[in-house]
């Protein structure tokens, strides 16, 4: 059964335009020019319990707006949302105890105090008993690899450590639906990997549903089986990540190792050169002519090793986004 059900959801904002300066303000006072901007435009989808779904789109595509409507922070202009049987905007206690929101660029921890104090505040707000609380803190901090960091004032933690504490604070009530808005923003590569591993583990352990937006394809690739691509407030792909790679990539990716250096210009006739570094060449060739190209390459070039792959997901998605926004 679908735990999240969204039907024909739209959100438009009124934006009043103002010219700079005093004259602009005066004009603004008397004659406002309001324009309505559709941030989310008639989207529908369903998410099953236990799924990890990634929302992808460029800045301002409507990902965050959708996420915030799903957790009940923003009123939809039209359409209906049901999250585990509740209408999010009512923000019923039972609903709130069931979800959590983690935002990469905003933090809820008390700045001047150790993270443990913020955890205690959250635990009391969610009505968690002290023994349960300590048990959960212990369990989650083991999963997150947190130890003494919980006892240090938050302002003295690194960004990565802080994010881990944020995650702990957001999960102390064991929500079954996690909304994550760019959870790895600004983190270094190790911290990113750590956060991803944790989320995967958490999802497995508690069968929680995870809905996340991210700019890092790494997050999406390692976490999400299913992705939803959004552009200008509309969904233009909703399905498995693997399928996307198969259907939307009309090209293949060839990596060649050479026995001796070749003038890169000579590769131009085979396909698009992605990378060319003396003995290493990467090419993008149309799938339709893959066979002939491979044949020609093997015949004409001093090849030591050769590998054919699907092109990297980043490139497919970037290309797709470019093609739909045109």
């Amino acid at each position: 059964m679908a735990i999240v059900r969204v039907e024909r959801l739209s959100k438009s904002y009124l934006i009043s335009e103002k010219q700079p300066g005093l004259a602009g303000s005066l004009k603004h006072l008397f004659a406002r020019t309001n324009t309505s901007v559709r941030a989310v435009d008639n989207i529908s989808f369903e998410i099953e319990a236990g799924e990890i779904v990634g929302f992808i789109g460029s800045n301002g595509a409507g990902k965050t707006t959708t996420l915030k409507m799903l957790c009940g922070l923003i009123h939809p202009t039209s359409g209906s949302i049901s999250v585990s049987g509740y209408k999010p905007i009512h923000r019923k206690t039972a609903f709130l105890k069931n979800i959590t929101l983690v935002m990469g660029q905003k933090q809820q921890l008390i700045w001047d105090l150790p993270a443990l104090d913020s955890l205690h505040v959250n635990a009391s707000v969610y009505g968690i008993s002290d023994t349960d609380r300590d048990e959960r803190i212990e369990e989650l901090s083991a999963m997150l690899d947190l130890k003494d960091e919980l006892n240090r004032p938050v302002r003295k933690l690194s960004l990565g450590e802080r994010m881990k504490c944020e995650l702990l604070a957001s999960l102390i009530h064991r929500p079954s639906i996690l909304f994550l808005d760019e959870p790895t923003l600004g983190l270094d590569i190790n911290a990113q990997i750590r956060v991803r591993e944790f989320l995967r583990e958490y999802n497995k352990k508690y069968r929680s549903t995870v809905i996340l937006t991210s700019h890092y394809m790494g997050d999406i690739k390692s976490l999400c089986k299913r992705i939803i691509l959004i552009n200008n407030g509309r969904i233009f792909y909703d399905g498995l990540l693997a399928t996307l790679t198969k259907t939307y990539s009309s090209s293949s990716f060839i990596s060649i190792e050479l026995t001796k250096a070749v003038n890169p210009v000579l590769f131009k006739e085979f396909g698009e050169i992605i990378e060319c570094d003396e003995l290493l060449v990467r090419l993008l060739v149309p799938r339709s002519s893959l066979k002939e190209t491979l044949f020609k390459l093997l015949n004409q070039m001093p090849i030591k090793d050769l590998e054919v792959n699907d092109p990297p997901t980043e490139q497919i998605i970037a290309k797709l986004l470019r093609s739909v926004s045109l």
Binding site: K68, G72, I99, K106, Q108, Y126
Partner: peptide, 13 residues
Amino acid sequence: QQGTLDFILLKPF
């Protein structure tokens, strides 16, 4: 200003 009101609105309180 910073949008951290989000966290508060999502608390069962």
